[in-house]
Design a protein around this nucleic acid. Structure first.
Lengths: 227, 227
DNA sequence: TTGACTTTTTAGGCTCGGCTAAATTACAAT
DNA sequence: ATTGTAATTTAGCCGAGCCTAAAAAGTCAA
């Protein structure tokens, strides 16, 4: 079992952690997070975000290039990964231990992610058997800030007919998650891509319950591990 | 199962809830909570508490008599009882479901009590079988704000030799709780007050593991139900 | 290169929950 | 009744995190 313990810089509070969290996620997709995107994700005006970003830069939590965008410093990344770890552990706990549906857990986990103590984080981890993924299949960062290595691939990148196992459904949209879950499309499900209709038409996927057809926008969210 | 749901006035946040919580507890012992006591419990200066109390009064959450003290309005009491309910449910959950020791749960519950959502509160309640007391024996307010009726009595008020069951250990001091727990003095234990030494000397209590002697200051924390 | 348009930052202000220092009020004892 | 002390409030300040409105910087097409 891990004995790692966090040591925090002063003044790390809810707002700070939510900014770091959002910046981390945005910098996964592009190389720098721009102010307007950050503001949108946080439900805040761009000017408000701009001011806050400057303060985070003063605190050495983000690297800021004015008019360009923000990146996390090592310290900022450490805090972001801690929040994400706690969020995903909470999602697993709410789902596995407390019986919440997989499309419900994101909101509740968000409410708790900046409030839980380290012993609670550790105890959840232990009770869950040190999971590597959340209910949607996102990776749970380890306490040392590393991520498990995986070979997830978009299901749409597969040759039709190839068997695979769903590993991740990459959205936090509750309605979509609920729908996909009802279609049997959630992590662990064995599926085969049967075909993609032309002109952005439906994608047909074979599951253990039969074939299902979903829109390409939804299919793009699904990542699998080929067999 | 209860279908009750809370409706909140605007701007009810962590600080507000902690003030209401402290005021509620202080007004259990005396008729009004005075500024300095509130400030001490919250780790804040009396002047800071004074300003905050005025604001709470403006929001109609407390009834304030300047230079005298504060009382909760019905709305303030409702919010305080909700926080206390959540705190004690969390303590039970941390103890029974997550395996934390009874002297550890107060701090962790405090960190979470203003963060949890109503569905989490309800689910914990359900998982715990709708408990009426926290691990230390304090009553858990119901969602409608009522408290279970009980007949707890200080163990020191009993005639020596009378058999009783511990119902509540009324402190949040972690060290004392740990010590009393190690002596077998926790809710549910069958005990008999054997005697009280004169001049504030030790109190002897018979437990199922034999006799234990504790100081009167600790014995005063113990409430029992006579058999 | 020059507009036109978008993005970002700055300027100035607001609320909340704190602080210290200085008044003020309450209270107890003479 | 008066005075000394303790409790409380007021005055003035600060920082965090947000806002709107206005200025500045970047971008892109003609």
């Amino acid at each position: 079992m891990s004995k790692a313990t966090y040591t925090d810089p002063v003044g790390v509070n809810d707002a700070t952690l939510h900014y770091l969290d959002v910046i981390y996620r945005l910098t996964q997709q592009s190389d720098a997070a721009n102010t307007t995107e950050i503001a949108e994700k946080l439900g805040v005006t761009p000017s408000g975000a701009s001011v806050m970003l400057r303060r985070l830069a003063e605190r050495k939590l983000v690297q800021l290039t004015p008019y360009k965008g923000a990146t996390l410093t090592p310290e900022g990344r450490r805090l972001a990964l801690r929040t994400i770890r706690r969020h995903r552990l909470l999602e697993m706990f709410l789902h596995q231990v407390m019986g919440f549906a997989w499309h419900e857990v994101d909101d509740h986990a968000h409410a708790l992610e900046t409030a839980i103590t380290e012993p609670i984080e550790d105890r959840m981890d232990e009770m869950l058997g040190y999971p590597t993924r959340c209910p949607h299949g996102h990776l749970i960062p380890r306490k040392d800030g590393t991520l498990p290595k995986v070979k997830d691939v978009p299901i749409l990148s597969l040759a039709p007919g190839m068997r695979s196992v769903i590993r991740c459904v990459d959205t936090d949209n509750s309605d979509w998650l609920k729908y996909l879950g009802e279609q049997g499309l959630k992590p662990g499900a064995k599926v085969t891509l049967k075909g993609v209709a032309p002109y952005g038409g439906p994608v047909t996927i074979e599951t253990s319950d039969g074939d299902v057809a979903i829109g390409q926008n939804l299919a793009e969210l699904i990542y699998v591990e080929p067999e």
